[in-house]
Amino acid sequence: MGDLVVHETTSCFAFARFGQEWRLCLVEHPRLGRGLVPGGPTEDGEGALTAAVREVLGKTGLRVRLLPPRLPEWYPHPAASSVWNVVSMPAAADSCCVRRHLHRDHIVVGVVDRPFVVHGAPEGTVHWVERSALDRFNLPEDTRVLASELFGLIDDRVALQPRPARDEDLAAELLRRQEEDQTVRLVPAAERTPEFMERWRAVDEANTAWLSELIAAHGWPGEALVGRRAAGAAWLLAQHADHRPDFQRECLELLAAAVTAGDAEPQHSALLEDRVLVAQGKRQVFGTQLVQGPDGTLAPHPVRHPDDVEALRAAWGFDPLETYIGQVSSSIR
């Protein structure tokens, strides 16, 4: 290559589940006027993987979890790197180099378990694009082709490896505790004496302590381990762990990762996301947390993006807000 200048760069194809569908994270490049996956040059002494995580955070404000390429099932050794490929790309003069040069680009693939939680201000406009919209988005052709290919691979790459053996005893205990949780909550308000409220508190504290021990021993109890109904019971216990907000936030991180892996119900993660945000005094995403006004009517706690909330609710399979509020109002009369 003679005196050709070579810059080490990284490009991250970051995916997130939006309800039951995958979307790809793209950022608008201010100079090129088109969408790109987050990426950029590596810094001195920095590896490609560290650079990828840093670039995604800086460009989008999101935290990405990198996925290693899948080796054959029979291969006895774990992957040592999350780089999927390294390619050489000619580059025009830019802010890093005043003449044409070469990018040695490390391509990585990752997932964002909580795409609505932003850590810092993004550098540009962020778009979450579904597969069907790739052809309508202004993208470099190589990005479009590779993104389309990766949409077809992502389900397999995030699936649990290996899948745990089903634990029927654990499933039965989760369902038993769910029944106890619901029994105290279905008692009419007029019958909730101080003694009863103490029993309610004791049920929640016991369930939370038990769930904490379970997670420490097994990780999040997803559908592969305990089945769909019992996995829903685990979410319910976490949803009602308000007296331990740090643990509840830990549950949300684990549940969101389980959703990414296809091992938990996306609605459960959305419901817990809203509950945690409201508990932190922040605006919720899906409008699932309601507050009762002085006249007894229910309304959502403030929502982050009111113009988008109905579309988000539809993507996650929730009823429209008006319908949802009506259903909750009827259930508490």
Rank of each mutant, 00 (worst) to 15 (best):
P194M: 14
A216M: 05
A258C: 10
D246N: 08
L175S: 12
W220F: 05
R176P: 02
E195Q: 04
H218E: 11
A172E: 13
H243E: 13
R249C: 13
P194G: 06
A217F: 10
E253A: 06
A216K: 13
V226F: 04
P140R: 15
E205S: 13
L170P: 14
R166W: 02
F137E: 13
R185P: 07
L134P: 03
A231R: 06
H243F: 08
R199A: 03
A231T: 07
A147E: 01
A209W: 01
D263M: 03
I154D: 03
T193K: 12
W200R: 07
A231L: 02
F137M: 09
R185Q: 07
C251E: 10
A234V: 12
V259Y: 07
L225M: 07
T208W: 07
Q161D: 14
D142M: 09
E179I: 01
S212I: 04
L214Q: 00
R244E: 15
P188M: 02
L252V: 05
V158G: 02
A190D: 08
I215D: 09
F196C: 14
L175K: 12
L146K: 08
H243V: 09
L214V: 05
A172I: 01
A172D: 15
R131D: 08
G227Y: 01
E191K: 05
D263T: 01
P164V: 07
R192Q: 14
E205V: 08
A165I: 14
N138F: 10
